[in-house]
Design a protein around this nucleic acid. Sequence first.
DNA 1: GTCGATCATGTAAACGTTTCCATACACTCC
DNA 2: GGAGTGTATGGAAACGTTTACATGATCGAC
Lengths: 333, 333
Amino acid sequence: MAGIKDVAAHAGVSVATVSRVLNDSPRVTAETREKVRDAMRALRYRPNGVARSLRTEATRTLGLIIGDILNPFFAAMARAVEDEARAAGYTVVIGNADERPEQQDHYVRTLLEQRVDGLLICPTAETTPLVEDCVRSGSPLVFLDRTLPGLDVPAVRADGTEAIHDLVRHIHRLGHRRVAFISGPELLSTGRERTRAFLDAMRECDLDIRDEYLETGDFQAASGRAIAARFLDLPHPPEVIFTGDNLMALGALDEIRARGLRIPDDVALASFDDVAWFVHLDPPITAITQPAEELGRHAVRVLLERVERRPVESVVLPARLVIRRSCGETEST
Amino acid sequence: MAGIKDVAAHAGVSVATVSRVLNDSPRVTAETREKVRDAMRALRYRPNGVARSLRTEATRTLGLIIGDILNPFFAAMARAVEDEARAAGYTVVIGNADERPEQQDHYVRTLLEQRVDGLLICPTAETTPLVEDCVRSGSPLVFLDRTLPGLDVPAVRADGTEAIHDLVRHIHRLGHRRVAFISGPELLSTGRERTRAFLDAMRECDLDIRDEYLETGDFQAASGRAIAARFLDLPHPPEVIFTGDNLMALGALDEIRARGLRIPDDVALASFDDVAWFVHLDPPITAITQPAEELGRHAVRVLLERVERRPVESVVLPARLVIRRSCGETEST
DNA sequence: GTCGATCATGTAAACGTTTCCATACACTCC
DNA sequence: GGAGTGTATGGAAACGTTTACATGATCGAC
């Protein structure tokens, strides 16, 4: 494949000059510029990004490690990250951790070796030595959606606390008393935060928190289904099932439908995370919606600031309750 | 950041030796190997993939350009591609063309400059000069899901013809006669293929093909909704609406629900492309399912063969009809 | 006890850029 | 007309690896 040398020879100039027109340096006559451009076209020249990166120590590439690309929430975030990055002239490499810490580490290692200019991580489970290394070595790093305690890394995330309080109040107002929660993993900040908010909100509404109504899933559909099954098998099954993410809601829905139960009469359902099709279900599912696109865009902006070594601050955006009919009909609205 | 030289100095060996242990060459004593490994750990050495790629002319990276990452079909495919590639020791860079030819070209250019070892493209619209260049220059290229006519490029795709015939027969058997189709763009091979199969199947069943029942969408939800609205406004609205992909089905569903119409009594619905939540709708949506994961995996295998300069053949996998209840109750089953 | 063979290790070139520094030429100004 | 200024261009080093080739040591066979 033709290189800068061939172009230089073909145009009758030095490689330095070719490099200059490549980088739009003003120190080139319009005339030579044209000569060089012609040579490039003639030779079908394509700049070698690898060589350029080696020399400039920059790849104009960002790494994004997400929990699960099949989760519409992450997909939406990834899409926004990609859009914002492209607008800033960066490419993004997406790594799918599949919620597995080893796989997350695999990607951290790979992307670091690939010398991405910055890294966006939605941490899966706890801090790993590799991530710590990353922080210590000062590679630009930003946490997205989830955070890791004790690490001085800026984070861009949504806060669902207020929305969860709204939801529990909504449920309470509709007359439900026995509310069960399928939480996310303790190891994830989002899992912890949502559980904590749920517990607080329950207390605030003077609702009983029963141990058998509280189980921990793994943010995947299968666990949502299994836990919903256990809830429904209880001597006193809950009146409401609230799930910690949309995938577990899907799983719970599977189980409810499989038993031929009606929503909300037999059991009500609500989900943290909203997805496009919740509105088409009968009844439409009440959910808490997170600003996925905004999170993605902010994350890129913050990361690029870090890449430029400017000081940055974490960003917290509110999640919001969307009341539909899966917990019961609201009085009037 | 520490380089191979620093490691060599620290371990008291030459850079060649360090490189050898890096590449697991057998020509190194266990003793020196250990010395070198120790030095690496001590210096927190991370191989520089950029330099390595420059030297070896290989990046162990694959490019994947898809139509729309928010489309669950593409997301599933992307996920499979990524899994298969990782298993083979490759990273994949996903480019989201958003169904826009310029953006597709942007990614082709960027990925080519980044010197990916191979490129997987789901072509958006027609052949562009850049893609032609790509073919001519012999960079390993495989089309995924969609093909481009007149180009000698291996393709991995699903064939929906048989499934569409099955669907039309199913619809016919249920007594429907007025069937409308929201097709995909003429410019996409999948759009053309599905329209053609639909027309053939209609003829086979002796069903009338009316012009006003045939409109072309762009595989996005909004166009599905707009076209469904026009169908429903017709003096003789169709009894069945069949959409060319899942996003347009979602749009049509929006419109049907907004008008308070019942499925299938007022209008039946079927979709090319199946998604997880169709089964939870009331009634569940009859759809044609494509083997997205298999397509992705095959595509990587074929591409890697091409990367190794071995001859390859196109792969065609069948799509399959999944009958649910959105076109009416089946007799017995 | 010497001659090859085998093997671990080292030296240095190459990969395709960018960029510092030098050079040569064209002006301007007095 | 010569010194000084400015500017377009070129030469060559450097980025961090891999690898062909060279080198010296060890060892077995005669």
